[in-house]
């Protein structure tokens, strides 16, 4: 993507955000119910693992404090999904209904124009809640909060957002290949089941697969590992670089998969 195209997409994102704010200013109940909904989701996750850690001190090499960091990244990446990628929840249905036609003829990346169109203001509130929880987790897990740690945390947050985008693209791809199958929803369930636990609970091969091939585990464990010093600087650079390339490959696969789009017969 050229610099000009990148700037164009940023400007489009700005307009999407503007439209999101205008829309949401009209629907206050929707605003608050979505904020509360996500807080319920956070609470249920925190409750489950507080219950588990009431009985043990360590799960697969992650103690309670470290686990909070992992959960924090899960919440942050989920909030990113809510803020920018909410439309992708409806991808399977829009695909069946042929609602991608207009995005196909626009001069921009179809995945971006479609996926990012539903900017959510309430997602921003949830992002603030998630960031607060993550900051709390890091504060408890790390003895000293330094400028370097803050920088690493910011990079780790960007990594969790990037991996979330890769995964969302992946289950869009599943829907494209199994057209109209609603299979993306199941893939989403499977992704969530894996992502909110440390990938270290799996055996070595599965863990590697989940961290670096179908990077479900990378949603939380890679960024949490970066912040908690589980990666050497070089290891972190390699992991991030690899995930970057993986994303580019996934987007290319999505564009190829679009050949299967049939719109609605007419």
């Amino acid at each position: 993507m050229s610099a000009n195209a990148f700037v164009q997409h940023l400007r489009i994102a700005g307009q999407y955000a503007r439209i999101g704010v205008i829309r949401k200013s009209q629907f206050r109940v929707e605003f608050w119910s979505q904020v509360v909904m996500d807080c319920c989701w956070y609470a249920s996750h925190v409750a489950v693992f507080e219950v588990l850690y009431a009985h043990v001190d360590d799960i697969a090499g992650w103690n309670r404090e470290q686990f909070r960091v992992l959960l924090g990244f899960l919440f942050v990446s989920d909030a990113f999904m809510m803020v920018w990628l909410g439309q992708m929840w409806r991808f399977w249905r829009d695909l069946k209904d042929g609602k991608l036609d207009s995005f196909r003829v626009r001069p921009g990346a179809t995945l971006f124009l479609y996926g990012f169109q539903q900017f959510s203001v309430e997602g921003c509130v949830n992002m603030a809640v998630a960031m607060t929880y993550l900051a709390y987790g890091i504060g408890r897990a790390c003895e000293h909060v330094t400028l370097g740690l803050v920088l690493v945390t910011l990079i780790a947050v960007a990594v969790s957002w990037w991996v979330r985008t890769i995964l969302v693209t992946f289950y869009g791809l599943v829907d494209l290949w199994l057209l109209g199958s609603d299979a993306g929803q199941f893939v989403n369930e499977a992704i969530h089941a894996v992502a909110d636990r440390p990938a270290d609970v799996f055996g070595a091969r599965v863990r590697t697969f989940l961290l670096y091939i179908l990077p479900v585990g990378a949603l939380t464990q890679v960024p949490a590992g970066m912040v908690l010093g589980r990666y050497t600087p070089l290891g972190a650079v390699v992991a991030v670089g690899w995930l970057g390339m993986l994303g580019v490959g996934m987007f290319a696969a999505w564009n190829r998969g679009f050949r299967r789009y049939e719109s609605a017969m007419g």
């Binding site: 588990l52 697969a60 636990r197 609970v201």
Partner: peptide, 18 residues
């Protein structure tokens, strides 16, 4: 099915830990 499969491994890790 995915969640119970993953939780099995979580419980296994818990029992190994304690």
């Amino acid at each position: 099915v995915p969640r119970p499969v993953v939780m099995t491994l979580v419980y296994l890790a818990m029992f190994r830990s304690t």
